[in-house]
Amino acid sequence: MGRSGRVTLNDVAEASGVSRATVSFVLNDDPRQTISEATRERVLQAAHDLGYVVHGIARALREGSSRIVVLHVDRGMEGNFSRSYVKGLDEELAEHDHVLLVRHGRQAPESTQKIIAAIAPRAVLRLGEIYMRGEVPSEDWENGFAANASLQIGHLAERGHTHIAMALPDHDYPLTEARLGFAREAARRLGLPPLERFVVPRPREVGGSAVGAFLAACPAVTAVAAFDDDIALRTLTALRDLGRRVPEDLAVIGFDETEHGSLSTPALTTVHIDAEVLGRIAARAALGIEAGGLSPVLGRIVVRASV
């Protein structure tokens, strides 16, 4: 059986005693191929017995689209979350004979239209689009993006911190407001005072001045929840330049773990998120296939020395 326990074309081919290409021709009902009725029935029976799902591919062919799915990954979303999401999306699409095309950075509408006109993709996805539209499914607070943001605030609260600030990037990333909104709601649910916010800009000297000015204006803050690991590391650098001790004077926690956090001094506590299953769910949705019991996996705190 295929990876992750999912049935693939190779499994059907082995069970029916024909080549992978023959299985593809049968399941796609390719009119250009002449295949005996006995072989066709054997392949269809094997696919049925194994539970192989062909609906998405068949529909793609009927609708005249290609077997390409396009994913847009906006600037500021290149962490572990996006890498694991792309991995799951790519592998699930491959298991259903589709190909993933990933586009990074800011995408103008006209360039997207050119892609659609050129390759007629089966679907065009945008990482995190549902949150950019301001939609938050109720289950998101159980195991989704909101729940992972809540983990970050909850970890600080468990360590006794009540006055918490959110460190944000100096660019308007698509998910900035969603992340801030989730963190504020998490603090409210925990009965904490309203979350403060500040920006940590580049370059280093400017960032240090911004952090220093914020701490002077909000001396009650004892912990910082950063937008991501990059912002957390900028904050650690600014605090070190200001002569502040971490975590004695101020605790800092990152988000969406990168390898750089383990190399900092002190090593960065952060939230690790594995989004592979989300990528697989998105792939199935794009192909018109039911999720089949797949569900998101809640992130986890990677405890190091900064909290």
Rank of each mutant, 00 (worst) to 15 (best):
R244K: 14
L168D: 02
A282D: 09
R184C: 02
S82T: 10
L250S: 04
E259M: 13
A13D: 04
S19V: 07
P194E: 13
G56N: 07
E63R: 14
D230Y: 03
L156P: 08
G79P: 03
H72Y: 03
A283R: 06
K87S: 12
I119Y: 06
I289G: 00
D256G: 12
D11T: 15
A21T: 15
L287P: 05
V252Y: 04
G51S: 04
C218Y: 05
S138M: 04
H155A: 15
V252E: 01
R240V: 10
I153P: 11
A275E: 10
A38E: 15
T8A: 07
A183T: 01
E139N: 07
I57D: 01
L287N: 03
V18Y: 10
V221T: 11
A167P: 06
G243R: 09
A21H: 12
R3W: 08
L268G: 06
V23C: 11
I281T: 05
D30S: 14
R204W: 07
V12M: 05
P169C: 10
R284L: 14
E41M: 08
L190G: 10
N80H: 14
R40K: 13
A285L: 09
V124W: 10
R126W: 00
A213N: 12
V297D: 10
D249G: 09
E177G: 00
R122A: 14
R234E: 02
H48P: 00
N28E: 11
I281S: 02
D230P: 00
A232F: 02
T269Y: 09
A146L: 03
R62K: 14
A118D: 15
Y131P: 00
G64A: 12
N80P: 01
D274S: 04
L168N: 03
E290M: 01
V43S: 03
P201E: 08
L190S: 03
K114P: 00
G2N: 05
G17P: 11
E63Q: 14
I130F: 00
T265D: 14
G292D: 13
A15S: 14
G293S: 09
M1R: 09
F214S: 09
A210H: 04
V86K: 04
E276G: 13
A285F: 04
V69W: 12
R133M: 02
A15I: 02
G128F: 04
G17N: 08
P201I: 10
G243H: 09
A120W: 01
E259C: 01
D49S: 08
R204I: 13
V206F: 00
L215Q: 02
T8K: 00
V73I: 15
S264I: 00
L195T: 13
A225L: 01
G288I: 11
G64E: 07
S84K: 05
R204P: 01
G261Q: 09
S138W: 01
V26C: 09
E142A: 14
T269H: 09
A286H: 04
R83W: 01
D90T: 11
T258V: 15
G208M: 02
N28F: 02
A108W: 03
E91L: 11
G51H: 04
T269K: 10
R59N: 13
